[in-house]
Design a protein around this nucleic acid. Structure first.
Lengths: 228, 228
DNA sequence: ATTAAAAATGGACAATCGTCCATCAAAATC
DNA sequence: GATTTTGATGGACGATTGTCCATTTTTAAT
């Protein structure tokens, strides 16, 4: 049962966190005041101090919550992916560009926090651990690809691929931030896979994309996975 | 001579703008108050209202100034570049990753403004026009490359290359923001050129980078430029 | 030198910020 | 049902915010 006491308590905590995120997404951090928060949450002024000990801690908790939500979503998506590394990469990329993850609300929140993160150490750490876990997931997959293929400088290639993929995703998010209307998810994905196909032609195909110019049309892309 | 009157006037305007940028870079936007600004500028409280009509306008002017500075630097660099499109691209990429452009101060300022840009329309526009002009510069170069090479879907390839390059640069900036110490400019450039070499093997060489895995080693990269 | 004009000063001002606590309401325990 | 315990309330509080203007200082014009 958990007790009506603690049940309400937790409910109000979540209401406050939700109110912060809504306000940050809509009005930005600088306009997210205590008055704004409690008005959105429909709670009284003292709640923030009671549950979080102050506004800063509440904002930090909200940043943490948002970060966890993002990562959990991505991880859940990854559960549904196949076992092959290329499938996992593809799932991460498409997931990170999907409506559920990449939308106005999330982008606004993410960039608002990041802009202030340099000062708020705690928030910066969430940024970091998120990126750290994501990087780990991607790097693992590329390491497997590289190992299977027996590339000469294996660790370097996997690292470059990881770095490039993350940078591209990051850039796409910025694109969305600045032009949410014109943004084209398919185009974004296509560009990233073009990059990956160039690095690992045996594992990623270009599908409908424009082929790079070549003299003799040397083996554009072999079929990717072996199983399923 | 320009008159000592107007000379001082302009000098103080610049002092205020500089103070805003210093403060934003060091303390972030939320801690950049009027008191903070006038203290840094060593001027009196009323100056902001006198010269800019209010804090918001001053901050906007500072954002504009920063944006212009960035773009002017890049354009100056471009003047020294050769005439071939690949040289121009290379100059833009290396310039955008150079110490002079990509440093802690600029990155902090840039992301601080961007985080708040959604609310401050004027600031967002600078973000936009900057990206617009940069995009134009890059797109022009890729269009020429694509035209010379007679790629089938020319406009699509040029657009994808532009989009990808900008996204990668954007991602690298974010990388620098989060990890200014670990950031490796050479690695960042190498990854971007790997992407470009994959799209236009006849125009961009991989140089010292790891080669993508291929079955038969089909023409990894022809020497790029023809002149000099 | 005297006057006119403009720039710079710094404090007054209302509004808003975030914090905190005396008080009240409700759930849990006896 | 009485009592204890804990959550919730909302106003008071000092600090700080940005704006604005009466005053002083400095430069330019006479």
């Amino acid at each position: 049962m958990a007790g009506k006491r603690e049940q309400n308590r937790e409910q109000n905590r979540q209401a406050l966190i939700g109110a912060v995120l809504d306000s940050v997404a809509e009005k930005g951090i600088s306009e997210t005041s205590v008055s704004e928060i409690i008005q959105r949450a429909g709670l009284s002024r003292g709640m923030i101090h009671l549950h979080f000990g102050g506004k800063d801690n509440l904002v930090q908790a909200a940043a943490h919550h948002s970060s966890e939500e993002y990562y959990d979503g991505l991880e859940a998506l990854l559960q549904t992916a196949g076992d092959s590394p290329q499938e996992r990469i593809e799932m991460i990329v498409r997931g990170d560009l999907s409506e559920r993850v990449l939308n106005r609300r999330n982008v606004n929140i993410w960039y608002a926090f990041r802009g202030e993160s340099r000062n708020r150490t705690a928030i910066a750490e969430h940024s970091d651990t998120r990126d750290g876990r994501l990087r780990g997931m991607i790097h693992n997959a590329f390491s497997r690809i590289v190992r299977e293929a027996g590339t000469p400088d294996a660790s370097g290639a996997a690292r470059d691929a990881t770095h490039g993929t993350l940078a591209l995703l990051e850039g796409m998010w910025t694109d969305f931030l600045l032009h949410p209307d014109r943004f084209d998810r398919e185009e974004a994905a296509r560009i990233i896979f073009r990059f990956l196909a160039a690095m690992f032609p045996a594992h990623f195909s270009l599908k409908g994309a424009v082929q790079p110019q070549q003299e003799k049309g040397a083996a554009p892309a072999a079929p990717a996975a072996s199983d399923s």
